[in-house]
């Protein structure tokens, strides 16, 4: 028979194990947040103030993102993908390299654009000033904005003229860096690794399906698409390819990705005229 002491030490031991920090439950308190209420954001000539966003956040955002910004609002159980945990300071849509904080402008754009295929709508109803205040409010949830600076946005050269050669070269990049491992040879998100993908919190996550007509998560301009694979979508399996795709090749890849998408485009028409075939995953390197 166990003594009371033994029972207690068992319980305490179990509690200690549970208290080991999984990334999602960093213990922030209202007090920590108060200390950062002076947080600002700077978008062009607009300065946002966290303190001015309190009412809007409580009305429109708390339901999913929670009072403490930990993504644990009352809608949490019903929402998938799960609401972002702002305390971690990790964001998908950035203009900055993987592992760095996004710029204020990046967060501002995400709020306006919303996130396709999630419960995050477009918040175009807010004025720019209100949105800037909300950016500052989002930042005040994470101590990272006190301790770190945002990353330096990647440089994107001007978009070149699209040509059949560039589309073909883009297909070779798709084959060489093996985008098809997750996104599939036709961009249908059915590559050999697609079924087992999980996000940073070990929750299942789907690769982007280029063919089903939905908007890319971080915007649908060519520059937005360029940015996705050159910065990675932090918190997800999508890595940064910045070290392995040169800027000029990156544009080729953007053009090729357009041929996979169902939306009509110049690239799609050109690919059709070319009779472009999908990549062959079994072809030896450099022989597509």
């Amino acid at each position: 028979m166990r003594t009371r002491l033994q029972k207690w030490s068992l319980l305490l031991g179990a509690a200690a194990v549970l208290a080991l920090p999984p990334a999602s439950c960093a213990q922030l308190t209202q007090y920590d947040l108060e200390s950062r209420i002076g947080m600002e954001s700077h978008i062009g000539s607009i300065t946002g103030h966290a303190k001015d966003a309190k009412t809007a956040y409580r009305r429109y955002c708390t339901g999913c993102h929670g009072d403490l910004g930990d993504g644990n609002g009352e809608n949490f159980p019903w929402v998938d993908p799960k609401p972002r945990d702002f305390q971690l300071g990790i964001f998908k849509c950035r203009s900055t390299p993987t592992g760095t904080l996004p710029t204020d402008q990046d967060l501002f754009d995400t709020i306006a654009r919303g996130l396709d295929r999630s419960n995050m709508p477009q918040w175009s109803t807010f004025t720019k000033e209100e949105r800037a205040d909300l950016v500052a409010w989002v930042k005040h949830f994470s101590p990272r904005w006190v301790n770190e600076k945002p990353g330096t946005p990647i440089e994107i050269p001007p978009e070149p003229e699209i040509t059949p050669e560039r589309i073909k070269a883009g297909r070779d990049v798709y084959a060489r860096v093996q985008c098809w491992k997750c996104h599939g040879v036709l961009g249908q998100a059915n590559g050999p690794s697609a079924a087992t993908l999980t996000d940073d919190l070990s929750r299942p996550i789907a690769a982007y399906n280029f063919t089903e007509g939905s908007r890319p998560k971080c915007g649908d301009t060519d520059r937005d698409i360029y940015r996705v694979f050159m910065t990675g979508l932090d918190g997800t399996p999508m890595p940064s390819f910045a070290d392995n795709i040169k800027p000029d090749e990156a544009w080729d890849l953007v053009f090729y990705l357009r041929t996979l998408m169902s939306q009509p485009s110049k690239a799609k028409t050109m690919a059709k005229q070319l009779g472009l075939k999908p990549v062959d995953p079994n072809a030896p390197a450099g022989q597509q």
Binding site: L88, R144, V177, P239, S240
Partner: peptide, 19 residues
């Protein structure tokens, strides 16, 4: 793709390495 807890000061990152 290393997965540290960003609250420690170690920031997660995710980079590709093709052949």
């Amino acid at each position: 793709h290393p997965l540290p807890n960003p609250m420690t000061g170690n920031i997660p990152w995710n980079q590709s390495q093709p052949p």
